[in-house]
């Protein structure tokens, strides 16, 4: 299961598109060394409808390199990250044999799964497959999710709840509406609530972490990898987020 650490400080979950570069797992190690509490690994899909230009480009880049779900999982299996790993991908890569897919994740040391095009209404078959493989299927909430549905999603989600900060794709601008959403969801569940989408600056991260248990940072990091940032350089970027969160989070309400 993905038990996110209860550190008392805001959780920091950076994202990486699996296979974006031959040395992509080096970035993963740098994330761990620089304060990641969990890491989201994107399994690239040809038609990522919830991703903005940056993660689309990252996905295309990885797919053009010829990576597959199998090749990414093989690489992940060979490392010991030391923090929870969470796969993020689209339902078409999952559904054909959901039980085998979840077992393969678990065998590679990945115990969390996020499928952004799988709403709670269609999630029962995968939730069952994930549970029997000891993988947490984490569900998403959005700013337009009605209250009754928020409760349904919070109850069905495992590991944590993934709160999409803004009405938009990954890499959109961070919206303050996300804070209200996170606050509302935290009242419904004991699970941690992570805010995601559009968290690009230290200020975004700090603002988000004031109303959530932590943040996911995706496009802002992937942009740097696409622009040629080395693993060590990206590690330093993550360390900056860590520091900003810790300095602000010292007086945050648990």
């Amino acid at each position: 299961m993905t038990t996110l650490p209860r550190t008392g400080r805001p959780l920091l979950a950076p994202y990486i598109t699996g296979g974006i570069r031959p040395d992509w797992t080096e970035y993963l190690h740098e994330y761990v060394r620089n304060g990641a509490d969990a890491i989201e690994i994107g399994l690239p899909f040809s038609d990522p409808i919830l991703d903005g230009p940056t993660i689309q480009e990252a996905s295309d880049t990885a797919l053009r390199r010829g990576v597959t779900v199998r090749s990414i999982l093989d690489e992940v299996a060979a490392i010991d990250a030391g923090v929870p790993l969470i796969a993020m991908t689209y339902y078409n890569l999952v559904h054909r044999d959901a039980a085998a897919f979840c077992r393969d994740l678990a065998a590679a040391g990945i115990h969390g799964l996020i499928v952004p095009d799988l709403p709670v209404d269609e999630s029962a078959p995968l939730a069952a497959a994930a549970a029997s493989a000891e993988v947490d299927l984490t569900l998403l909430v959005a700013p337009t999710t009605p209250a009754a549905r928020l409760a349904e999603i919070a109850a069905a989600s495992r590991g944590f709840v993934y709160a999409v900060s803004t009405m938009g794709t990954t890499g959109s601008s961070f919206a303050a509406s996300g804070g209200r959403l996170a606050t509302e969801v935290r009242e419904l569940t004991a699970l941690p609530v992570l805010l995601a989408f559009g968290i690009a600056t230290h200020a975004d991260a700090v603002t988000a972490a004031r109303s959530a248990d932590g943040v996911v940072i995706g496009a802002a990091l992937m942009r740097r990898i696409l622009d040629g940032c080395s693993p060590a350089e990206l590690g330093a970027v993550l360390a900056g987020f860590r520091k900003a969160l810790d300095e602000d989070g010292s007086d945050c309400v648990p």
Binding site: D117, D121, A142, V164
Partner: peptide, 10 residues
């Protein structure tokens, strides 16, 4: 069925 991001459900 309906396989879309949560933001579109409403």
């Amino acid at each position: 069925g309906r396989f879309v991001p949560e933001a579109l459900i409403k």
